[in-house]
Every structure is written in C-alpha cells, then in structure tokens.
Amino acid sequence: MMRVWRWILAILIGAWLPIVFIAWWWNASAESTNPYFPPLSVIWEQFKVNWIFELVPVHVVPSIRNLLVGFLIAAVIAIPAGTLIGASRSGTRYVEPVVDFIRSIPPVALVPIFILLLGLDAQMRITSIAFSASFPILLATIEGVRSTNLVVLDTAKSFRLSRSAILWRVRLPGAMPTVFAGLQVGFQIAFVVTIASEVLGSGFGLGAFTLIATDSFLIVDAWTGVILLGILGYLLNLVFDLVERISLRWYYGQKKLS
C-alpha cells in the first residue's frame, strides 16, 4: 500500500511541471487569433481527429517500423563488430580514428547522400537510421569490451575457456552496461534520423506529415504532428528504459546494494 502511494507521489512530482505548462498554454492561447499559434483547444480537437486513430496506420506505423528495424540492424551489426574490435589490441587503434571521423558528421547531413545512393524508398530511410545509430553503439561496445576487468579475465583463462567463450560469454556480458549507454544514444539518434529521413521525398511518416502540413499552411495539423512526435519520443524512451532495466537487472541490483 505504501509503495503504491509512493509511486503515485513520484508521478505527481514528475508531472506537475507539464500540467502547469499545459494549463498555461491552454489559457494563454484560448483567445489567440494568430494563425501560427492556434488555441490549444483547437489543436487538441484536431489531434483527436488525426491521431485517435485515423492517420496512425498511414503516418505513425511506417515511422516506428523504420525506426525499430533500423535500430535493430545497427545493434545487430555494431555489437558483434565492437566486441571483436574491442578484444583485439591493435583493432581499436586502426578503427577508432575512422569511426570518430564518421561519427563527427551530423547524422542528418548524411541523409541527402543516402538519397543519392539509394533513392527515396523505405530502404534508404532504414539504411540511414541503421548507419547513424551504429556508431555510438560500436564505440560503446569497443570501450566496454576493452575495459574488461583483469580479474574476470584471469578467472576465465584459468578455467581454460575457449577464446570465443571468453569473448561472448565473459567479456561481452560484462560490457553490457556500457553497451546499453551506447544503445541509448544510438536510439535517440535513430529517432531523429527517422523523422529527418522522411522530410525529403516521402508522403508517409510523421516527419513527412508535419512538413507537408506546414508547407500547406495546415498549421493546426502541423502542431498535432509536433505534439505527437514529443509524446512518441517520450514513450519510446520509457520503453527503452524498461528494456534496459530488465536486461541489466544484475547490474542495477548490484549497484543498489553497494
């Protein structure tokens, strides 16, 4: 019972600022005649028409699908690659400068290049997302695997575990807290690139919707798109945190005790 109350209290503490902000926006915009800042009540009515759930299959589903597929491809490639590079003494030195260079280019700036190379279909968007998201994951994995604790390594060697068992069953699992830090950054980048990749040459997706609405002076629609983007980003992060908490139960449990 106490726990439930504490939980509710925690939500209220976190929610007071958004509530105050929404209330202020609602009141301040109520009499607005400025076409760029329509009343929040009007936006809300349009929001319900658009997103509960009329346009969700057309604009939300493709965005989320591209995001998840791109992000998963990035993780599936970058984690094993990072593990192999991090475990090799010279590998890191050869690869890191290149990775650092490519990573320094703002991911969104690469979208036009991908359009030139791959055209304007979903494959291009997924490739852009996967490419951009893979670098933070790769670097975090390299770092995590490279800094395997020496006692852990000695122990594994003294068991005469094979090189591959040491790599995949000892070094990589031990590096997972660091890997997840990279996944988190990669996921945020994936979200940004998902939207940015839709801004050019697409009729579907939330990025496309919002841009087309703006260009067509459908300002209220554009606002609903922006608000939905915020909500989606927030919810996706919550899901990500949940997955991390579950996957790294051992790590958080240990941290809580020490």
Partner: peptide, 15 residues
C-alpha cells in the same frame, strides 16, 4: 582450479 581473493570480481555478477 583457481580461487582468487577478489570474489566480487572473480564471480561473474551477471550470472
């Protein structure tokens, strides 16, 4: 077989 002093590190915390 080996037993090391630093059990907090020699036991894998994720297992």
């Amino acid at each position: 077989a080996v037993v090391l002093q630093d059990y907090t590190r020699s036991l894998m915390p994720w297992l």
